[in-house]
Amino acid sequence: MVLPASLRMLARVLVVATATLAVACGNDDGGARITVGAGDSVESSVLAEIYAGALARIGTRTSVEPHLGSRTDYLAALDAGRIDVIGEHNGALLAYLDTKAADRIPEHVRKALSKSLPEGLVVSDEADGTDLRPRVVLNAETARRDNIRTVGDLTPRCGALTLGVAPIPDLIALPPSLDRVAGCDFAATVPFPDAAALRKALSDGQVQAGLLTGAPAVVPDSADGLTTLSDDDYAVRAQNVLPLFRKGVLDERQIKKLNYVAGELTTDDLAKMIRSVRDDKARPAEEARKWLDGHSL
């Protein structure tokens, strides 16, 4: 039987409506949209895109809210529900939440941070392969002459030394209380605008020890001519990347995905992405996509 033209038209409309409804229902299966925030650093922007991209690959609807400002600003956005997830450093976040905390070793920092988090905020696994601690440095010639290889070797001498402090840019900011070395009471501390100025001051003898406020790999020439002292005892507090998020917004599968990210991310990976965004004007989202692809995430 041949349908009249009007009935054939109605049938086509119903087919289109049914397909549209099916797509809409399919989108609802992804649950609520997860908004990942980014502060004012390149690192924060890269982490936001990595987390958002990783969650999107398991079907989560995600968006990134950039340029949220300082730690105070983006934590306020998290508290207000404007964002759901933000990348952080465990040690820096602990220092911000509990100014009296003295914990420095990763497992101790983990426990102390868990106790210090405000009601309604939680963290998942930190990226053990990321070590973004400040680094204690000496002029290479001085380190050889005095046979100083570790922060422990330096500790007995600190009281007679002047420490120079220089920032490593584009990382999530450290609270000022972390620009120090446990067990070292230096005679004086002098700030410098960048690593180049600190290197010159060490070479000229203006200061006898230096502190770079993050991993030198972020600025590859920052430690040229310097010896970076090993710090296996964590005289400088642990600084590992981890996601901070509102309790209840992520399900078990989504948290597991972020834990996979934590298991793969390294200092060198993160430094390379930061340099690409800063120096080559790459887009954070593109760097995150390439990293996720390269790690089958």
Rank of each mutant, 00 (worst) to 15 (best):
D204W: 03
D204G: 01
G205Y: 15
G205A: 12
G205E: 14
G205I: 13
Q206F: 13
Q206C: 05
Q206G: 07
Q206L: 14
V207Q: 08
A209L: 07
A209M: 05
A209Q: 11
A209T: 15
A209D: 12
G210L: 06
G210V: 08
L211Y: 08
L211N: 08
L211F: 13
L212I: 13
L212M: 12
L212C: 12
L212Y: 01
T213G: 01
T213M: 05
T213C: 03
T213V: 07
T213A: 02
G214L: 04
G214M: 03
A215Q: 08
A215G: 11
A215K: 00
P216K: 01
P216T: 00
P216N: 02
A217C: 07
A217E: 15
A217F: 02
A217R: 01
A217K: 02
A217W: 01
V218E: 02
V219I: 15
V219S: 09
V219P: 06
V219R: 11
V219K: 06
P220V: 05
D221V: 09
D221Q: 07
S222A: 14
A223R: 11
D224L: 11
D224R: 10
D224P: 00
G225C: 11
G225K: 07
G225A: 10
L226D: 04
L226M: 04
L226V: 03
T227N: 04
T227D: 03
T227K: 08
T227S: 14
T228M: 10
L229H: 09
L229Q: 09
L229N: 05
S230T: 13
S230F: 00
S230M: 02
S230C: 01
D231Q: 02
D231M: 05
D232E: 13
D232K: 01
D233R: 15
D233K: 13
D233Y: 07
Y234M: 03
Y234N: 12
A235G: 09
A235N: 12
A235S: 11
V236R: 09
V236M: 05
R237I: 09
R237E: 12
R237F: 12
R237P: 15
A238I: 13
A238H: 07
A238Q: 08
A238R: 00
Q239R: 03
Q239N: 12
Q239H: 04
N240L: 06
N240W: 00
V241C: 10
V241Q: 13
V241S: 07
L242I: 07
L242N: 09
P243L: 14
P243G: 13
P243R: 11
P243E: 14
L244K: 04
L244S: 03
L244N: 03
